[in-house]
Design a protein around this nucleic acid. Structure first.
Length: 267
DNA sequence: CTCCAGGGGCGTA
DNA sequence: TACGCCCATGGA
């Protein structure tokens, strides 16, 4: 067990913020599976407990939850005159942009297109249970996210039975592209935001929106600004005279996340 | 019944 | 560039 103090952190909001699909709320904690590890998180106000050693926290979860970043610096970029964003930030305070696995983000957000969050979660869960590696930590068993090599050898028909519908071909092709190193993940991680987005958009089934999600949640480019149905509505209704993209440079991704969460649950 | 869900590909004007 | 339609699926 390892504990930290962080005021700008809310595990409940992060769990339901729509950026991660495998985090789960349990009776007295939140369970996360990422990078082949399982951890439980318990929070009371600004005290956050991780059910792991300090070493595992330092090597995995500190980065995963982006704890080196002071999220107040993003917030301070927003002037009082932007009432919409001020409200969104107040509502979503404590949300952070997770540093998730790029490969997992590619598949997760391909599945997300024209889909709803509950079904995205069950589809990903099914894929992990069928093709991921089964592991166990402190008597709790879990499944890792399957590798590109494993997924590339699954049949289209079999993938469809994971309830992914027409997206199965996109998933298979992405697995082939990565497994064959037609696109190298390590190169993708070194690219600028613009180059990474352009490269991702060469994948069938990845357009601007999905590419931006991968850039933000998997590659941690803070200026990626995914525009989905919710954000489109936010831009039309909350910013009829235009959104201040230039003024918010450097914080576009986190601000998009506050706005998304606000529209998703508050409306 | 239609509409919608963290869209994208493709054909047409 | 902009629009319409299709893609699979199930809940509202």
């Amino acid at each position: 067990m390892y504990e930290i103090i962080e005021p700008n952190f809310d595990i409940h909001k992060i769990c339901y913020s729509g950026q991660c699909f495998r985090m789960r709320e349990k009776e007295d904690c939140y369970a996360v599976v990422a990078y082949g590890k399982y951890v439980e998180i318990r929070q009371q106000q600004d005290q956050i407990q991780f059910s792991c050693t300090k070493e595992e926290f330092d090597t995995i979860w500190y980065d995963y939850f982006d704890l080196s970043k002071d999220y107040d610096t993003f917030i301070h970029l927003v002037p009082d005159t932007d009432e919409y964003m001020q409200s969104a930030i107040r509502f979503g305070y404590g949300i952070r942009i997770l540093k998730q696995d790029v490969w997992e983000m590619i598949i997760s957000f391909i599945i997300s297109q024209a889909n709803n969050i509950p079904r995205i979660r069950t589809s990903i869960q099914t894929i992990c249970e069928r093709y991921g590696e089964k592991k166990e930590t402190n008597g709790i068993s879990y499944h890792t996210f399957p590798s590109p090599e494993v997924l590339s050898n699954v049949s289209d028909l079999e993938l469809r039975s994971c309830n992914v519908g027409f997206r199965s071909k996109y998933i298979l092709r992405a697995a082939q592209i990565i497994a064959s190193s037609e696109v190298s993940l390590s190169n993708l991680k070194k690219m600028s935001y613009e180059d990474a987005k352009e490269t991702l958009m060469t994948f069938p089934g990845i357009g601007k929106k999905v590419a931006d999600c991968v850039c933000l949640y998997g590659l941690h480019h803070y200026d990626a600004f995914p525009i989905d149905t919710h954000i489109k509505k936010v831009l039309e209704e909350g910013y009829p005279h235009g959104f201040p993209f230039e003024a918010y440079k450097g914080a576009l991704g986190p601000l998009q996340q506050y706005a998304f969460y606000y529209d998703l649950y508050y409306k």
